[in-house]
């Protein structure tokens, strides 16, 4: 366990929205090629933490961050860090599927195009990404159809394909299944487990069963603080903290 590479880490991170203290002294590490689940009641800061790893807060006014967020040896918030480059290495899948209002093909091709992937390679990459995301069979005959006509589950898998097409090192997932039916959820969970061997995945979820099904590690957050982290089994079956125990047993949240 200990010789596993630390892919992402946060060191004494504090974050404020205006005068609201949202993240309080976060110290945390995420290991490579593992799925880590962030759990905790609504408003505990888990999505905020997730989004600070690819600087999605950059466009919001009134956000203040202290402490260090690291992608391996690179300081994410360092002045010379290219945010564009960073986001290519740290991909993101959002809570609500947000395909571009373009064709299915173009949804994946767009990221390749702006990142200067040579034209002749793109068709192959698009197909590979769609296959990896288990949506190829469903859409291979209608790649030019608007992505917005797909079902919710298909849209979310397309968004995952869009992310993996760029070969990021980390994939952040912000409650990717919260808007989906159980069958689509199951498909995406299988996909997450398959992707684990190539990527480091952090997933925010409200669903305790989901965390247990997909995550190697689990982090429990409460009111902006990390209360407990460890192996998923330990967190759910042997919590050290009473608060964690109450939460995972569904006593609040």
């Amino acid at each position: 366990m200990t010789n596993d590479l630390i892919k992402l880490s946060a060191q004494s991170v504090n974050l404020w929205f205006g005068s609201k203290h949202v993240l309080k002294n976060i110290n945390i590490e995420f290991q490579q090629n593992k799925v880590t689940a962030l759990i905790g009641p609504s408003g505990c800061g888990k999505s905020t933490l997730l989004r600070s790893f690819n600087r999605m807060h950059d466009l919001l006014p009134d956000v203040r961050i202290e402490g260090k967020l690291m992608l391996e040896q690179q300081d994410i918030y360092e002045k010379n860090t290219s945010v564009t480059q960073l986001r290519r290495r740290v991909g993101m899948v959002f809570q609500k599927a947000n395909p571009f209002p373009k064709s299915i093909y173009e949804n994946i091709n767009y990221g390749l195009k702006i990142n200067d992937v040579p034209k002749e390679e793109r068709d192959g990459i698009v197909e590979k990404a769609l296959r990896e995301s288990y949506i190829w069979e469903e859409v291979k005959d209608e790649l030019q159809k608007p992505a917005t006509r797909l079902s919710g589950g298909q849209q979310q898998r397309l968004c995952i394909a869009r992310t993996v097409a760029l070969r990021p090192e980390v994939i952040l997932m912000d409650e990717p299944c919260s808007a989906l039916d159980p069958l689509s959820t199951l498909k995406i969970e299988e996909l997450i487990i398959k992707l684990k061997k190539d990527y480091t995945i952090i997933i925010v979820t409200h669903n305790m069963q989901q965390a247990q099904r997909v995550a190697d590690k689990t982090v429990f957050m409460y009111l902006g603080e990390v209360i407990e982290m460890g192996n998923t089994d330990d967190i759910f079956n042997n919590p050290k903290n009473e608060l964690t125990g109450n939460y995972v047993k569904g006593r609040f949240g």
Binding site: G91, N98, Y110
Partner: peptide, 26 residues
Amino acid sequence: PASTREAALAVGATQFESIRDVVLPA
């Protein structure tokens, strides 16, 4: 929606690219 802009940023578009390629066409 803001999520459309975020989608473009998340695949590595700059802010202007997200406006030009995604927001304005929509």
